[in-house]
Simulated scan of single mutants.
Amino acid sequence: MLDLLNVAQDSMTILAAHIPMVDLPDSDPVAPPGLADMWNRVVGVGKWIALGIAILGLFIIGGKMAYDSRRGETTEEVGSLIKLVMAVTLISGGASLIGFIVG
């Protein structure tokens, strides 16, 4: 079985060596007219909505921590808080990355 796979791999290597390589032109990325402004607006609005939801989540987690601290059970909220911080980092980083790519 391994011999058959080796023969197939060698055949593909020989075939790939005979395929001519073509240099593709490397052009600058240009957004279609009118689309860049709309795209930036959609990304900006989406970022603010996502960050607003994250702030609401922070208030909810804080309220749960205050409520559960009377019983001495805040370990679950710490995990939620870590997830929220990671989500805010991803939202901010993603919006910055898109802005860098588009801009």
Rank of each mutant, 00 (worst) to 15 (best):
M1I: 08
L2Q: 11
L2C: 07
D3F: 09
N6C: 09
Q9V: 11
D10N: 14
S11L: 15
S11A: 15
S11H: 12
M12F: 14
I14K: 14
I14A: 13
I14D: 10
L15T: 08
H18Q: 11
H18W: 00
I19M: 07
M21A: 13
M21V: 14
M21T: 14
M21I: 14
V22Q: 08
D23I: 01
P25Y: 06
P25I: 04
D26Q: 12
D26A: 11
S27A: 08
S27R: 08
S27D: 08
D28E: 14
A31L: 15
P32C: 02
P33F: 00
L35K: 06
D37S: 11
M38H: 09
M38G: 01
M38W: 09
R41H: 13
V42K: 01
V42W: 05
V42S: 03
V43M: 05
V43T: 06
G44F: 01
V45F: 06
G46E: 05
K47M: 04
W48R: 11
W48M: 09
I49R: 05
L51A: 00
G52F: 00
G52C: 01
I53T: 08
A54Y: 02
A54S: 08
I55M: 00
L56R: 02
G57V: 03
F59D: 00
I60M: 03
I61D: 06
I61C: 03
I61H: 02
G62I: 04
G63I: 02
G63S: 02
G63L: 03
K64C: 03
K64Q: 07
Y67H: 04
Y67V: 00
Y67T: 03
D68T: 01
S69N: 09
S69E: 09
S69R: 07
R70H: 09
R70F: 15
R71Q: 15
R71Y: 12
R71K: 14
G72L: 07
G72A: 05
G72H: 07
T74Q: 11
T75V: 15
E76G: 15
E76I: 14
E77F: 02
E77V: 04
E77W: 06
G79P: 02
G79F: 10
L81Q: 08
L81Y: 10
I82Q: 11
I82T: 15
K83W: 15
K83I: 13
L84S: 10
M86A: 11
M86W: 10
V88T: 10
T89P: 06
I91H: 08
G93F: 12
G93R: 11
A95C: 07
L97R: 12
G99T: 09
F100P: 00
F100K: 11
